[in-house]
Design a protein around this nucleic acid. Structure first.
Lengths: 190, 190
DNA sequence: TCAAAAAGTTAATCTAGGTTAACGGATTTT
DNA sequence: AAAATCCGTTAACCTAGATTAACTTTTTGA
């Protein structure tokens, strides 16, 4: 159950079996059903989430009631609202499951304990967040400089696994376009 | 000369004077003129840059030759292309100066040395990148969910210092709109 | 297992913001 | 200090993608 997590956390720094044990003691396993919320707007994010199995979406709802998907989550990915988690302020995001999903949660206090007991985890999370930051910057560039068909093409090239597993209207929401527009793009691109 | 850097680096973790000395030995001071490039598309980013004084812009040029500003840099900010810096691949960004600018550079090897000699710097950079990631995520949400006037309003609320110091067409480029559209927004909002 | 809901597609119309162009004022450059 | 370039603004027109709507196909859950 903890294997995928240990494998993820030893991606950048080697871990001894004692360290792996400490890690296991600080995470909590939980199952969610399809459509179930992991996090809801207005909640304070009490934990960061590692996905063992399943698919999640993180989205915001704007003033006009429209949903905008900010991130998908698949096996071996981390999801959560870092801002709310770190500051204790209520989140503006919703996270729910597109399939039955199994996760490992860690609270803020336990993450601090982890950094204390296994200091090399600072390095791991620095590198991990660095990579997430780079990805976010690139997506931002794309959203400013690319047309809808270009963004769609980039998306299926970059995340073929996601394209297989989530519905088209979810991808449209991620790309910032309507399902109708995506449908037109798809019919024209072949 | 190094004072603003030491102050920046001790924001999240306390630093002794020996540690401050190590830091000073690893950074290089450099002056740039207005319009001068710090980094150009195709270069490999050899250093991360801390701004002591001045203003920079980081931008990408798309297929149609249009510039898209990804980030502004002011005093006490870090700029650079983390992806190119970390992987050694050529950058797709340009960084140039909107005013005469003074910076402190650190190379990848020296940053590794810094992490080794002052391990608490891992923590500092983890938190710093965490904050940058959060900011990038929020800007991404805004670019997907907000209209141009809303994005402009958010921008001047969040970065009044930038609004004072950079030209409007630069702000338009940052917001992903044309200078004409920004001009229309500005004339309607008062 | 079948009715209801959700998802995908296509087409007609609408609109936010882009494009082009022209002009006056402010900076730079020589 | 003249010439050249850059900036901001306004206006007329254009276009990518949104909206609305109607219909078909697929999925869901009672």
């Amino acid at each position: 159950m903890y294997d995928p997590l240990i494998k993820n956390l030893s991606k950048f720094v080697p871990l001894s079996s004692q360290e792996a044990e400490i890690i296991e003691s600080l995470f909590t396993f939980k199952k969610y059903r399809k459509k179930q919320y992991i996090l809801q707007e207005g909640d304070v994010t009490r934990f960061e989430t590692f996905i063992v199995k399943g698919v999640t979406r993180t989205y915001e709802v704007d003033d006009k009631g429209q949903e905008h998907i900010v991130q998908f989550g698949l096996e071996d990915w981390w999801v959560g609202d870092l801002y709310s988690f770190l500051t204790g302020s209520p989140t503006t995001y919703n996270i729910d499951c597109l399939e039955d999903t199994e996760v490992l949660h860690i609270t803020k206090a336990d993450l601090e304990t982890l950094y204390e007991k296994v200091p090399k985890m600072e390095r791991h999370f620095r590198i991990m967040i660095q990579n997430a930051f780079i990805a976010s910057t690139r997506r931002l560039s794309a959203s400013l400089a690319r047309s809808a068909p270009e963004r769609y093409e980039e998306f299926i090239k970059k995340y073929p696994q996601i394209e297989q597993r989530v519905a088209n209207h979810q991808i449209a929401s991620y790309l910032g376009i309507t399902p109708q527009t995506l449908s037109r793009i798809r019919s024209q691109s072949q």
